[in-house]
Design a protein around this nucleic acid. Structure first.
Length: 312
DNA sequence: AGGATTTGACCTGT
DNA sequence: ACAGGTCAAATCCT
């Protein structure tokens, strides 16, 4: 990686800039159209993410002069560290002095979810820490995307049990997945529901869950598309392994190009095998009939992403 | 053996 | 100074 040709870099930056502009236009456009407030809010949120992603990528590419530029979070430049082995500071030796080895994420976007159960979210997570939190009954668990190093995916999450009685888990997500490895390569049953008819707009609802909720039935108008199963890691006793969500957002977005989801549609299900149940999370998106041009815009945005990926 | 988790130490923001 | 986030060596698991 240390050797990306400058021309390529420029091309990538150019493409990303273009993508950012398009996403920005899309946001303006959304502002003027008549989506319902929920969808609008969700769409703006998603667009914000897209814009943020573009901006970060551009920043990384522009700053990291030589290439190599690993990530924003793993920054060297340690003040008190010996200058030898200029470059990777915290990676290898210097077993003790970790000053400057990492930067705590500060401004990356976060969003939280409170759910009564723990479940899969389609991504592979690696636990990297656990911390007792003041005034909290349960420790907080820290996870990062398994592909942090091989694909530079910066997504991470924190999971904490906040209630005992009716169990309640709070999951805080940081950053978007940029990795491509969803755990859906084998055969689970994610549900994608395209709810074809509602009053004003036709709306589309996708719902996902690594296990199907037995009782759940989409309404009559729903078109249900099943996607392959995601890998399940059934560890009965310790499950803060992954949770639903955001990444599906990414998955959905890239797969279908348009729409956003709103959080909060999570619903709990019964249980099977006496263990925790994975319940489907419902993402919804309203696709207005007059949004074709937006589709094209979003297409364009994702084209940029794809191009960026292929170049990098 | 290699990957994942545990856990104490370390670092940073407030 | 403290609380919380991250690192990385040790340990566990497959």
């Amino acid at each position: 990686m240390a050797s990306t040709i400058p021309t390529d870099r420029k091309t990538v930056i150019g493409e990303l800039s273009r993508g950012r502009e398009i996403a920005d236009q899309l946001r303006l456009m959304l502002r003027q159209t008549g989506f319902d407030s929920n969808s609008t809010a969700a769409s703006h949120g998603l667009l914000g993410k897209i814009l943020d992603s573009f901006t970060r990528s551009i920043t990384i590419l522009s700053c990291a002069g030589g290439g190599d530029s690993d990530e924003v979070s793993q920054v060297p430049a340690k003040p008190g560290l010996k200058p030898e082995d200029s470059g990777d500071s915290c990676k290898t030796p210097a077993p003790k002095d970790r000053r400057g080895c990492y930067k705590r994420r500060k401004t990356s976007e976060t969003w939280t979810k409170e759910t009564p159960t723990l479940f899969e979210d389609g991504h592979a997570w690696r636990k990297y820490g656990q911390k007792v939190i003041l005034n909290a009954k349960h420790p907080r668990n820290y996870f990062r995307c398994t592909h942090k190093f091989d694909q530079g995916c910066l997504a991470s999450k924190q999971v904490q049990k906040i209630e005992d009685d009716p169990p309640l888990y709070k999951t805080t997500y940081h950053g978007q997945h940029t990795c491509k490895n969803l755990l859906n390569s084998n055969s689970s049953h994610h549900q994608i529901i395209i709810d074809a008819a509602t009053q004003d707009h036709s709306s589309i609802i996708w719902s996902f869950g690594s296990r199907q909720e037995p009782d759940y039935k989409p309404n009559n108008n729903s078109l249900v598309i099943e996607s392959p199963e995601i890998k399940q890691e059934n560890k009965e006793e310790y499950q803060i392994k992954s949770s639903p969500s955001d990444d599906q957002d990414y998955f959905v977005s890239s797969a279908f190009d348009t729409c956003s989801h709103h959080m909060g549609g999570f619903s709990s299900a019964g249980s099977d095998h006496g263990g925790d149940v994975i319940s489907p999370d419902v993402y919804s998106c309203t696709a207005s009939t007059h949004s074709l041009d937006m589709d094209m815009m979003v297409d364009s945005v994702f084209d940029d992403f794809l191009e960026f990926r292929s170049l990098s």
